[in-house]
C-alpha cells in the first residue's frame, strides 16, 4: 500500500504482476532493473566524456587555425 502511494516515478512497473510473487523473485527483477539503469547511466557518462574530449580538441584546432 505504501509502495503504491509513493509510486509517482512513471517508470515501467516491473512488479505490476508480482503481487503474489515470492520476495526472492521480486528482488531478482528489481536488481535486474537497477542494473539496466546503472548501465544506461554509465554509458551516458562515457558518451559525455568522449564528447567533451572531442569538443575541446575541436575548439583547440579551430582557435589555433584562426590565429587566436
Amino acid at each position: 500500500m505504501v509502495v503504491m502511494e509513493r509510486d509517482l516515478s512513471g517508470t515501467p512497473s516491473v512488479d505490476a504482476n508480482l503481487a503474489d510473487a515470492p520476495p526472492e523473485e521480486i528482488r531478482r527483477r528489481q536488481a535486474a532493473m537497477r542494473a539496466r539503469k546503472l548501465r544506461s547511466r554509465n554509458l551516458a557518462v562515457l558518451f559525455a566524456l568522449l564528447a567533451l574530449v572531442a569538443l575541446f580538441y575541436a575548439i583547440t584546432v579551430v582557435r589555433m587555425s584562426a590565429g587566436h
Partner: peptide, 11 residues
C-alpha cells in the same frame, strides 16, 4: 521494495 524500485535515476 521501494528502494529497489527507484534503482537510481536514468539518463
Amino acid at each position: 521494495l521501494t528502494l529497489d524500485r527507484m534503482g537510481g535515476a536514468s539518463a
